[in-house]
C-alpha cells in the first residue's frame, strides 16, 4: 500500500494514515452471524423465486394452439374444416345450381396453368 506524499509534504500525516490502516477493528461476531443469516434467507428466496418463475416449456401442439389464438380459435377452425369436408362429400342439390350459375354448365376449370401444361406435353413428346 502506497503513501501519498505527492499531495502534500506532510510526511507525518502519511504516518498517521499508515497507523490508521493498521488500526482496524475486528468485525463483531454477532454482525458476522447476522450477515450470514441474511445470506441464507436471500438464498432461500432465490430458490423459491426460481421454482415459481421457471417456465414449463410448452409442447408443439400447445405452442401452435397459442399461436392460433387458443382453444376458441381451434374449435372454430375444426368446425369450419368439418363443414368443408361434409359439403365436399355430399354437395347439396341447391349448391350445384349456384356453381353452374357462377362458372357456367360447360366450363372447364384448368387446374394447371396453360403454359405449364404445354411444357408437360413437350416433355412427354421427348
Amino acid at each position: 500500500m502506497s503513501t501519498h506524499t505527492e499531495d502534500t509534504k506532510d510526511i507525518w500525516l502519511d504516518e498517521c494514515f499508515a497507523a490508521a490502516r493498521q488500526d482496524t477493528t475486528a468485525a463483531p461476531d454477532d454482525l458476522i452471524t447476522k450477515i450470514l443469516a441474511d445470506a441464507g434467507t436471500m438464498q432461500q428466496e432465490f430458490a423459491t423465486q426460481s421454482l415459481v418463475a421457471t417456465p414449463v416449456r410448452a409442447g408443439l401442439f400447445a405452442r401452435v394452439s397459442q399461436a392460433l389464438g387458443g382453444w376458441p380459435s381451434i374449435t372454430g377452425l375444426a368446425t369450419a374444416s368439418l363443414a368443408g369436408v361434409w359439403i365436399g362429400m355430399s354437395a347439396p342439390a341447391g349448391l350445384e345450381g349456384v356453381t353452374q350459375a357462377l362458372v357456367g354448365a360447360e366450363a372447364v376449370i384448368d387446374v394447371v396453368d396453360q403454359y405449364y401444361q404445354a411444357e408437360f406435353e413437350l416433355a412427354g413428346d421427348l
Partner: peptide, 25 residues
C-alpha cells in the same frame, strides 16, 4: 452464492465484512 452455494456466502462474508465495517466506522 447466487446459485445456492453456502460456502461462497461464508467466504464472502468473512472476506468483505471487516472491510465494509471498518470503512463505515
Amino acid at each position: 452464492y447466487a446459485n445456492g452455494d453456502r460456502d461462497a456466502a461464508r467466504v464472502l462474508t468473512l472476506r468483505l465484512t471487516p472491510r465494509v465495517f471498518n470503512h463505515a466506522l
